Measured scan of single mutants.
Amino acid sequence: LQLFIKTLTGKTFTVEMEPSDTIENLKAKIQDKEGIPPDQQRLIFAGKQLEDGRTLSDYNIQKESTLHLVL
């Protein structure tokens, strides 16, 4: 599923993930694309901070959802 990642600077980029992927996987993918170390990434969806060990489906993140990346 394609997700939109929006940064505080207003930049938006996309990543391609599976619902079974963990937040950790997502942070690694963001590191590949943007060079931001996972330990500096905080991801927010629907007002909640996402925890590394959980999956996208745990948070009911669907295709074309927008996640906010806070550094």
Rank of each mutant, 00 (worst) to 15 (best):
L1T: 04
L3R: 00
L3K: 00
L3E: 00
F4G: 03
I5N: 00
I5E: 00
I5L: 03
I5W: 01
K6M: 12
K6H: 09
K6L: 14
K6C: 05
T7Y: 14
T7N: 06
L8M: 13
L8G: 15
T9K: 10
T9A: 09
T9G: 12
G10I: 03
K11Q: 12
K11W: 10
F13S: 02
T14K: 11
T14W: 08
V15N: 00
V15G: 00
E16T: 09
M17Q: 03
E18H: 09
E18I: 13
P19S: 12
S20M: 11
D21N: 08
D21F: 04
D21A: 10
T22P: 06
T22W: 06
I23A: 02
E24I: 09
E24L: 14
E24Q: 07
N25Q: 08
K27P: 00
K27H: 02
A28I: 13
A28D: 14
K29G: 03
K29F: 11
K29W: 14
K29C: 04
K29Q: 12
Q31I: 02
D32F: 10
D32H: 13
D32P: 02
D32E: 13
K33S: 14
K33L: 12
K33I: 07
E34V: 14
G35W: 04
G35F: 04
G35P: 02
G35A: 07
G35R: 06
P37Q: 06
P37L: 08
P37A: 14
P37T: 09
Q40K: 14
Q40Y: 10
Q40S: 11
Q40R: 08
Q40L: 15
Q41D: 01
R42D: 05
R42A: 06
L43H: 01
L43P: 01
L43W: 03
L43M: 03
I44W: 10
I44C: 05
F45A: 03
A46I: 06
A46M: 10
A46S: 11
A46G: 11
G47M: 04
Q49F: 10
Q49I: 15
Q49C: 05
E51G: 04
E51Y: 05
D52A: 07
D52W: 03
D52T: 15
G53I: 07
G53P: 09
G53C: 04
R54P: 04
R54E: 04
R54N: 11
L56M: 06
S57D: 08
D58N: 05
D58Q: 09
D58I: 03
Y59I: 03
Y59G: 01
Y59K: 01
Y59W: 02
N60C: 04
N60I: 04
I61S: 02
I61G: 02
Q62E: 11
Q62H: 09
K63Q: 09
S65Y: 12
S65D: 09
T66W: 14
T66E: 07
T66G: 03
T66I: 09
L67K: 01
L67H: 02
H68G: 05
L69S: 01
V70I: 15
V70P: 01
L71A: 07
